[in-house]
Design a binder for these strands. Structure first.
Lengths: 205, 205, 205, 205
DNA sequence: ACATAATCGAGACGGTACGTCCCGTCTTGTT
DNA sequence: AACAAGACGGGACGTACCGTCTCGATTATGT
């Protein structure tokens, strides 16, 4: 047996392999531009190539259209799972809403919010992927908090946890969206959680 | 006194007067395109002119940029105030959320939702105007419902009605945004209102 | 009869008319670049547009490909007919060869020589047009000189004037082509004409 | 002493020796493409590599640029010296012009003509080499014919043989250049030679 | 009636980005 | 060390729109 590196059937294709460095630069540039304020429609391949110091060909060789590129770029943007203390549901939910509100402060987080502000009807594939990557895992983590609350009696046993998440997230995102300075959210998380936990109706009713 | 047809003191300037018909057609076309799914960024004067059957000059003579046109177009888009029965807060709030969810069904309503989904940071003037026209009046009507509820004991006396609105609207809009078919909202308004009214925590807690 | 400018059937098409200034600038730029040394293959529409201060669209609106543009550019390059004194065939032929050799000295003339040096097989349409514009008229003027010479006895009665032209032009162009400095042609025209007029064979033979 | 197969003193460098087969294929491909109608400017390394079944690296390792390659390719293109019967100057010159006109008929000969039609100002090194290889040796052979003619009285004693060659070659090449089918040259060589030998002026003048 | 003047549709303008093609250079694993 | 394969940065291609600009034609007013 002569020089044969592996016994796997899948051999590397001939020729110079694609540069991982270029690939990273392209993704970085894409996220930078989205974070800097470009909507998906405004993103231009030419601008990405220029910022990445890369030929347009190198982009088109990998992704056949802008949406595919954005999808992959988002994939490399691991939205970190919030670390829940687990002492009480209230505390954990506040932690969660604070994560949402803090997200806009760093460049990559602004990315997430910009995508979030896009119209899901226009870029369905991007939004689908975005949902899968940035929403679903965190959603499940928060759902676990809610379920735990239901089990240990902190929350109503018949609570629709799914709907509860919608209410929490919706309130937070909606409020932040209309703030002139999305960084200033003061005690908003606490107030939302408290209000929602108690309910609007009086206890005696 | 010269030849003047109208009784207004302001003399009409010489030359051919601007065509009201063209103006209406432009506004209609703008709303049509927004309703059909164009975001503000994607909206193009060229497309509006084509759909209105009008030269591009005719548009630019009236509005110096796209945002000004959209602002004026939105002004002619009267978001109807919901009619509240006034029998109970619960009923009125459900009515209100149903108004939101129903909005997507007609062409002009979809317009409202599309603007709503836009990034307020990118088109501040449009969003400001939109807030003034479509949000504020309805917000006040709903706030009145909440205040009435606080006064007559249907709602907690210390309820932050402003935050309550945020929670209700946010939950509804957020949910609709992620629905594949935004028309299908089933019993969502009822479930949101009920959940929020009772609170997540158990009554005994 | 109302406002009608002319009675001709051909009315000007609607819209802004094409700018003659732009057209001239494009042609000038094209000739400049050819004169500066670009072969037809090397000519780039982008370079022409840049030098003419014009959008690429403005070029493509008028000419569907590079050859058509070059053909039109050549058309505006009126190679002046040589002025023949008419005193003798010898003098006129020398004048003619001097015109050829002088052509390279000015920018537009260098244009002619550059096209001449192109391969006629590759750009047949250009060469055909070039022949029609720059070769044929001058050829006929020189043919007239030769015919006059045959009639008044300065040239052999059975001279093949067509072939004679080929010999004169070919000799001159061929020689100039291989000169390092095509401007320095000394007494070449005189020497060619004299040699050709006398013939290579001795008079007595 | 290392591993050395040949008896030459120059040690062959280590590593795999360059493939002569590849080298030949490259040269063949180059000549093929030039013969097929590519001007030097249009000739591309990529095309040569493809036709030779060779990687582009293999070409660039040997020649640093296109011109160098063309120069070497031309070197392997031995333009055959015409065989002169020596019976008369007229016969030999006709033979010579026929060689020129026949050259276009075979693939390698068309090569010569294509280079000949190139602009010497643009590829000076190629043309210089071409002159040395394909022009000079044949030129000298023809010059010998002319000199012999002068010596034995077939040509005028004061004939400028150098200029005479220019006239003959120039006429032939010029004529062929403008022919739609350069193969069809009928009795052109005879007619040119006869005309030039006799001179345009009448014998009595 | 008729000059004046602003508006109209149409479409050309300079410009930007598109996605494709090809260039000459470079970087792999294999020979 | 040379080979083929093929990715790389770069540049031009021809197209599609963009927002601006210029036309002749239209439609009012003011004399």
């Amino acid at each position: 047996m002569t020089t044969q590196t592996t016994t796997t059937g899948a051999t590397r294709p001939a020729g110079r392999p694609r540069s991982e460095k270029a690939e990273r630069a392209i993704i970085e540039a894409t996220l930078d531009l989205i974070g800097a304020g470009s909507s998906i429609s405004e993103l231009s391949i030419e601008a990405i190539a220029a910022r990445a110091g890369v030929g347009k060909t190198t982009i088109y060789r990998r992704w056949s259209n802008k949406e595919d590129l954005v999808v992959d770029a988002l994939s490399s943007l691991k939205a970190p799972l919030p670390q829940f203390a687990g002492r009480s549901v209230r505390e954990d939910l506040i932690t969660w809403l604070k994560v949402i509100s803090t997200e806009s402060s760093d460049l990559r987080g602004r990315c997430v919010m910009n995508i979030l502000n896009s119209d899901p009807g226009r870029h369905p594939r991007v939004m689908e992927r975005f949902h899968e990557l940035a929403i679903k895992p965190r959603r499940e983590a928060v759902l676990a908090v809610l379920h735990r609350g239901v089990e240990n009696g902190e929350l109503r046993p018949d609570l629709d946890v799914d709907l509860a998440m919608t209410i929490l997230n919706g309130a937070m995102v909606w409020r932040v969206k209309w703030l002139s300075d999305p960084t200033q959210t003061d005690g908003l998380p606490e107030r939302i959680v408290d209000e929602v936990l108690r309910g609007f109706a009086p206890a005696s009713a």
